[in-house]
Simulated assay, not measured.
Amino acid sequence: MVKNTGRPGYLQIADDLREQIRSGALTPGAPLPSTTRLAERYEASLSVVKLAVGVLRNEGLVIGQQGKGVFVRESAAPAPPEASSDELTEIRATLQDLSERLARVESALSDRP
């Protein structure tokens, strides 16, 4: 069921289905329940369920087959690679630099009459 948490319902549904795929409850090649059944299960509209399935399609976790349904991909998209400590250090330095530059711009703008 979609909860009133402030997070959009379609993202809650996508999160739940994604977790089922990653945990193995929905195995590669397995069909997702129909849009109607998912709407009933999550007490959501068909359009909200379709948005959730669209999110999973964009992530490469499911694939639609015209006239047959939506299936868990045989080889779901791999998780993004973790950044190395050197990359994280570089990202932090860049963020620090941008923060300092933004502070200077804001200061200059606030000094104007």
Rank of each mutant, 00 (worst) to 15 (best):
R7W: 03
R7L: 13
R7Y: 02
R7V: 14
P8Y: 04
P8N: 04
G9A: 15
Y10A: 09
L11D: 08
L11V: 11
L11R: 05
I13K: 08
I13P: 06
I13G: 05
I13L: 05
D15F: 12
D15M: 09
D16C: 09
D16P: 01
L17H: 03
E19K: 13
E19L: 13
E19D: 12
E19C: 10
Q20F: 01
R22I: 06
R22C: 01
R22P: 00
S23P: 04
A25N: 10
L26T: 02
T27S: 15
T27K: 15
G29I: 10
G29V: 08
A30T: 03
A30Y: 00
L32R: 02
L32A: 01
L32V: 08
S34D: 00
S34M: 02
T35L: 09
T36P: 00
A39I: 03
A39K: 01
R41Q: 15
E43C: 08
S45G: 12
S45L: 05
S45Q: 11
L46W: 00
V48M: 05
V48D: 05
V48A: 14
V49I: 10
V49S: 00
K50D: 13
L51Y: 07
A52Y: 02
A52K: 03
G54D: 01
L56R: 08
L56G: 06
N58S: 13
E59V: 00
E59A: 14
G60M: 07
V62E: 04
I63E: 15
G64T: 06
G64C: 05
G64F: 07
Q65C: 02
Q66V: 10
G67L: 08
G67Q: 07
G67K: 01
K68A: 10
K68S: 11
V70E: 06
V70H: 02
F71W: 03
F71N: 00
F71Y: 11
F71K: 06
V72W: 03
R73A: 10
R73G: 10
E74M: 07
S75H: 14
S75I: 01
A76I: 15
A76G: 06
A77R: 15
A77D: 08
P78Q: 06
P78S: 09
P81H: 10
E82K: 12
A83W: 06
S84P: 11
S85M: 08
S85T: 12
S85P: 04
D86S: 13
D86Q: 10
L88D: 03
L88W: 04
T89E: 06
E90W: 11
E90P: 02
I91T: 08
I91N: 10
A93Y: 01
A93K: 05
T94C: 00
T94L: 14
Q96Y: 07
Q96D: 11
D97E: 15
D97L: 11
S99D: 12
E100Q: 14
R101D: 00
L102D: 04
R104N: 05
R104H: 11
V105E: 07
V105H: 04
E106W: 00
E106S: 06
S107I: 02
S107E: 09
A108H: 09
A108E: 14
S110K: 11
S110E: 07
D111V: 07
D111E: 11
P113C: 03
